[in-house]
Amino acid sequence: MPRHADASGEVKPDAPSSTLEALRRPSVPRRRSIFAIPAPVKQLFNRFPLAMYDANELPLSAPRSRELLRLYVFADGGGDGLEVVSFNPSCLKYQAYLRFRNIQFRVVSSSNHASPSGSLPFLLPKSAGTSGDSQSLDPIPGNKLAKWADGQESKFEEPSDPRSDAYMALVDHSIRRAWLYALYLTSNFRSVIWPLYILPTSSNSLVRWSIGYDLRKAAEAELLKFSPTIDADLLYLEARDAFESLDGILGSDTWFFGAKEPGLLDAAVFAYTNFLLDPNYGSGWTDDWLVGALEGRDGLRRHREQIREQYFVVS
């Protein structure tokens, strides 16, 4: 602020101050930001768009007709038939579960890149006529599929047993971790995972190598979340105990907990046993310690055969 010093050396403020005057003014015109669009330019742009083109056509690989539900999974080939069985446990779990619920769907062989959430499986609902609301057309991610299936009109009694959740933890915790170790961190990675997951994604060996590296790292990180070191023996013992107690609780029943229809736990167990008991995936198991954990579990073998015969058509 400019100040005047008089002869005595005293400093006096400017009087009257121009800022004070400005504040006293009855109405202050609204200040325009320098970033505001000038009026003529704004008027010009208000005329846009001058013309609207039609939306681009969907790519050729996009589903043309959506009369049928489409379940995107990791699988060899896809189709309407019942012969496609996913080789990924979390995909197969829901594939089997939807079959149990007698829901008609088409299996689409896909990869993570197709999924809105970045992971498979997901279900693309069928369009409800031409004027279906967009909400009902959103893809349903895997973890919401069970809830979604509950909302469908189908006469299905989900077997409810409190033990089911506890046994599910056994599958998701003990068996899954042993699975991660056995398939990603042993020589099985090269013989089973490589041909199933990595070869179809790219023909470039550098890309393949990078994806393979990422997968192994991810599996390792997942295992290290629960313990600071990876104890393969303990993982194996836990998996063996898990299969033993699953086999024990199944007993001579057809389905878990003596239910009339198979439920989510049946699907989850089948998702692992189906893969473990099939020696033909990839170029075969080179390290079969996890397969050995199923040794003598005849109940689980019978359970797997039952589901394959009743809900899948496999040669």
Partner: peptide, 14 residues
């Protein structure tokens, strides 16, 4: 009736 391995897996995961 419930196998101890089930309880421990349930406790450890959830």
């Amino acid at each position: 009736e419930l196998d101890p391995s089930v309880v421990s897996a349930f406790l450890r995961s959830q």
